[in-house]
């Protein structure tokens, strides 16, 4: 059996004296889509920062295809094929739409995604390619952020709160586009507060509560009351 794309074991994370994650275990197999749910402050964003290398982790806590990546810098993690669509889009304001996308291609990984493919997925971005990224609507900015991550042809793509702050109709469009994005054997982790949306596109779900994994289950069969309990900690 091949090593999983990502295997997290006993992950602890700290901000100064504050501990945000306590012994988190998690695994993503090739081609799998994982949903991570949890309330604000449960540690979801910290987990994303640990995986992508924005936080430095302990030894052997984060393994990518059998290699310890937990102590690599974020750019080195990116070169290994892990990309993120960050919370709140975080486009580069002084770069045009096209330049934002081109930055994503900086890692020079081969694969199906290039400018043309992204424009095909989101035609509006081609029309707006020379505009400042900050002049776009929230939904369009999210498209740029997704396109920027895809341009690196990642094996594993992380979506951090993609529906946060967007209109419901935009969220629907983006979720409609997701299968086309992660259908080509790419693995994905989707961090979401909208539980039903998260379950609808994922195969397995983890729930975080106060920095610990409080639930791990199949997305299609998980019971609602289990989720409530894991989410809010109500017995």
């Amino acid at each position: 059996m091949p090593d999983p794309i990502l295997k997290i074991s006993g992950l602890n994370a700290h901000y100064g004296d504050f501990q945000a994650l306590f012994g988190v275990d998690m695994q993503v197999d090739a081609g799998e889509v994982l949903a991570i749910i949890g309330a604000n402050g449960a540690g979801k964003t910290t987990l994303m920062r640990s995986i992508t290398g924005l936080l430095t982790n302990g030894p052997d806590q984060i393994m990518h295809k059998g290699t310890d990546i937990g102590r690599l810098r974020a750019d080195e993690v990116a070169l290994r094929g892990i990309a993120m669509v960050p919370e709140g889009r975080q486009l580069f304001p002084s770069l045009s739409v096209k330049e934002n996308l081109m930055i994503g291609a900086q890692v020079l990984r081969p694969g199906p995604w290039n400018l043309k493919a992204v424009y095909q997925l989101f035609p509006i971005l081609e029309e707006r390619k020379d505009q400042q990224s900050t002049s776009l609507s929230g939904g369009q900015q999210q498209m740029v952020a997704i396109g920027r991550a895809l341009m690196s042809n990642p094996e594993l793509i992380l979506f951090d709160e993609i529906s946060l702050g967007l209109a419901p109709v935009i969220i629907r469009d983006i979720y409609r586009a997701l299968p086309g994005i992660i259908g080509n054997g790419m693995s994905a982790i989707i961090v979401e507060q909208d539980i039903s949306k998260a379950l609808s596109v994922s195969s397995r779900v983890y729930c975080l509560q106060e920095g610990r994994v409080s639930l791990e289950d199949r997305s299609d069969t998980v019971a609602r009351e289990d989720i409530s309990r894991a989410y809010f900690g109500i017995e």
């Binding site: 992508t52 290398g53 924005l54 810098r73 974020a74 750019d75 990116a78 070169l79 990309a83 993120m84 960050p86 975080q90 580069f92 304001p93 002084s94 770069l95 330049e99 081109m102 930055i103 994503g104 900086q106 890692v107 920027r148 690196s152």
Partner: peptide
């Protein structure tokens, strides 16, 4: 482009492999 990206947001630029 890399100069401007790093100047805008160092963390996100790192995520893009810079």
């Amino acid at each position: 482009r890399a100069f401007r990206a790093v100047s805008d947001n160092q963390d996100i630029a790192q995520l893009m492999g810079l």
